[in-house]
Design a protein around this nucleic acid. Structure first.
Length: 539
RNA sequence: GCGGCUAUAGUUCAGCGGCAGAACGCCUGACUGUGGCUCAGGAUGUCGUGGGUUCGAUCCCCACUAGCCGCCCCA
């Protein structure tokens, strides 16, 4: 038996690491709540169309990184059969299901009023499997019936749900009929995808529940796993966790205001500070309206025709495939050339320029440090105007801690009302990595006390004592009466700040022996005062 | 998806074509109600998986799987 392991790009999170994850999540919830955000939880899989339309068909995420599957094929087949039978049932006196197990088609033996036999096989498509199954059934039956009933006719029919090239019916060279049945068999079948990001899902929910009808700004945050089939690397997993938030609403609610952008950025700065992450930097840019961007890309492509041949091999390729990525190049020799390329700022319309300027004014006012980076471009199609990225050194190639921006046209792209918005997503995995690097030795939070019963008969009283202390809000680890005292001390010293001895004396007198590991001080404490005596310093 | 490096004890890692190693950690005892220090003893294991070469492979070769680094892309 081969050992089953977590699949590539996924991993288990264990204590004490999970404690750090919980702290990050708790901090996010606390900080976001101060800005009046509420939590939204959307499904982990959605209709594939949502991402194709929202994120963009041409992006790497959609074109090659999604976990997508077709759902509901079984349902579709039974619909097909029932529809076909409804139309043809009167032609037959007997219908027997003879489906071989383990095949992808359903096999019916139908006998008509004249005793003729017809084999009917249903399949989603005219697959090789289904055709050969049909052919062999017919051939076999013909061989038998030639002896049994010389006059009996045996025919075969393959019913499929996909359209046929030449019309609704065609005949194979073996004389088998292939018939296409049109209808709503695909209704229950749909292409589903594990979400590669959460913004599209949030906007879908916004539209579906008509949240815009409230007239209010919706401020929603989410915490959850996302899925992309990329090559795993440090800080990059196939199942990874994001914390994100979206501010979205009708324009009348102020959703388009540059103040929203600045407020979100200021909240993020507070969040990172509160988490104790130092050394982050914020890069900011505007990619303009939905019409500005294509104009800029065209200009960039034009400029690169001359410049690209002098650049690195990667850039030469990017110039063709994805010119915006040239701006991201890190090769030192290419930097002077990149400086000479057209800047997106020069291609913004006046409204976008004014919007961006207002964002900067608001940020300056509240003292959030940033750097305008005219080269900052984002990979998802829905971004407009303000885009940003918080980076942190020490994350290797995956230095983006958090990214986001405005998406003024996304709702319309998904068939919803006009609902401008701005949001971000941060990589929780990367955030935790950064925190772990910062606090080299993350001391696991010790229990307030370790209770050591000194014999087996004291186990039950020890549990009672533990319950008492736990009810008082203390974090208690419970030992075992079979341990030798030395062992109890050794374990206690590892997992708790203090040890409480429960021996026969203590049980009788109700006065417990408590020893603090840090100071080595040992004292007798009446049971009633124990909880107070063990209360640790607030962390 | 492409290129490079790696895979040995719970952990970090040495090692060698011929009995599987160290440090830390773990267990037992010296010490029957007092930890950290010390001393004595002990257990670690599919040497990532599968094939090949060889009398013999943890070691050499191939494939696979996984991880790390870079690219791509992104959070």
């Amino acid at each position: 038996m081969t050992l089953l392991k977590a699949v590539r790009g996924t991993r288990d999170l264990l204590p004490p690491e999970t404690e750090l994850w919980n702290r990050v999540e708790a901090t996010a919830r606390r900080v976001f709540a101060r800005y009046n955000f509420g939590e939204i939880r959307t499904p982990i899989f959605e209709d594939t169309q949502l991402f194709a339309r929202g994120v963009g068909e041409e992006t790497d995420i959609v074109s090659k990184e999604m976990y997508t599957w077709e759902d509901g094929e079984r349902f579709e087949k039974s619909l097909l059969i029932s529809k076909w039978l409804l139309a043809n049932r009167s032609n037959f006196v007997e219908v027997i299901d003879k489906s071989p197990s383990g095949t992808s088609f359903i096999d019916l033996e139908c006998k008509d009023h004249d005793g003729n036999l017809e084999y009917v096989i249903f399949a989603a498509r005219s697959s090789h499997d289904a055709l050969s199954g049909l052919a062999s059934a017919v051939v076999k039956e013909r061989a038998l019936s030639s002896e049994r009933r010389a006059n009996a006719k045996v025919t075969g029919r393959l019913v499929i749900s996909s359209p046929l090239p030449g019309g609704s019916e065609t005949t194979t060279k073996e004389g088998l009929v292939i018939e296409a049945v049109h209808g709503s068999f695909f209704k229950s079948s749909q292409s589903l995808t594990l979400r590669p990001e959460n913004t599209a899902g949030v906007v879908r929910a916004y539209i579906e529940h008509k949240l815009g009808e409230t007239g209010l700004l919706q401020k929603l945050y989410y915490i959850g796993p996302q899925f992309r089939r990329e090559r795993p690397q440090k800080g990059r997993y196939r199942q990874f966790w994001q914390i994100g938030a979206e501010v979205i609403g009708p324009p009348s609610a102020g959703s388009e205001s540059p103040l929203r952008d600045a407020e979100v950025l200021e909240m993020l700065a507070s969040f990172l500070d509160e988490l104790g992450i130092t050394g982050w930097s914020l890069a900011l840019n505007s990619v303009g309206s939905a019409t500005d961007r294509p104009r800029y890309i065209a200009a960039l492509r034009e400029a690169l025709k001359d410049k690209a041949p002098q650049m690195c091999a990667d850039c030469q390729r990017r110039a063709e495939t994805n010119p915006l990525r040239v701006l991201d190049c890190k090769v030192p020799e290419d930097q002077p050339i990149i400086e000479t390329l057209p800047r997106i700022a020069d291609y913004l319309d006046d409204e976008s320029k004014a919007h961006f300027a207002a964002v900067l004014v608001a940020l300056d006012a509240c003292g959030v440090k940033y750097e305008v980076n005219p080269r900052l471009v984002r990979g998802l199609d829905y971004y407009t105007r303000t885009t940003f990225e918080f980076t942190h050194g020490g994350l290797g190639a995956q230095n983006a801690l958090l990214g986001g921006g405005r998406y003024d046209g996304l709702s319309e792209m998904l068939g919803g009302p006009k609902a401008p918005g701005i949001g971000f997503a941060m990589g929780l995995d990367r955030l935790v990595l950064t925190l772990q690097a910062a606090q080299s030795e993350s001391a696991a939070a010790l229990a307030d006390a370790y209770i050591a019963p000194l014999s087996d008969v004291l186990n039950a009283p020890a549990l009672e004592l533990a319950r008492e202390l736990r009810c008082a809000g203390l974090k208690i680890e419970l030992g075992d009466g079979s341990f030798r005292l030395k062992k109890s001390f050794e374990i206690g010293n590892k997992v708790a700040r203090a040890i409480v001895l429960l021996g026969e004396d203590e049980q009788r007198s109700g006065i417990l022996t408590v020893k603090d590991f840090a100071s080595g001080e040992q004292r007798k404490v009446p049971r009633g005062e124990l909880a107070g005596a063990l209360k640790g310093p607030e962390i």
